[in-house]
Amino acid sequence: MGLESNGSSRSVDFDYEPIPRMSNTFMLPGKQTEHELIEGIRKGVYIKSFQEWNIDDKRFNFKAVGNDSYLIKNGKIAEPVKEPSLELTTPTIYGSIDAVAKHVRLMAGTCGKGEPEQDIPVTMGGPAIRLRRIRLGRS
């Protein structure tokens, strides 16, 4: 591709082929507090955790369904909301971000790739982000 290596090759053991893959990957922080992200919303949903994440192999059609989730009314967190479904394209998600919080949270995870499977430890995470004017659905 006419580029230099950025040192991303890793394998699980000496006898497995190295695969270019994520290592410690996180979204860079912005400048606002999470409170400021929330107080700027008149009608919205705060999704703290999610499940049922999947994406197609073009990495285009994305779905995640909120677990620990709350309505936001006039800038304040209100009652819990059940299973808000976020089924969007990748450009819609990243194109809808209008604010990024400054506090980064990291978590341990596993990157699974390869044949045979090479599961490898990674760190991932980022700050809270705010998406504007997106449609939530319940499947």
Binding site: Q51, E52, N54, I55, D56, N61, K63, V65, S139
Partner: peptide, 19 residues
């Protein structure tokens, strides 16, 4: 299909992506 993932294992709510 791929990425068959569950929202709720006990209820059985899931989605899967035709591939």
């Amino acid at each position: 299909t791929w990425y068959t993932t569950f929202q709720n294992y006990v209820k059985g709510d899931f989605s899967t992506i035709p591939r």
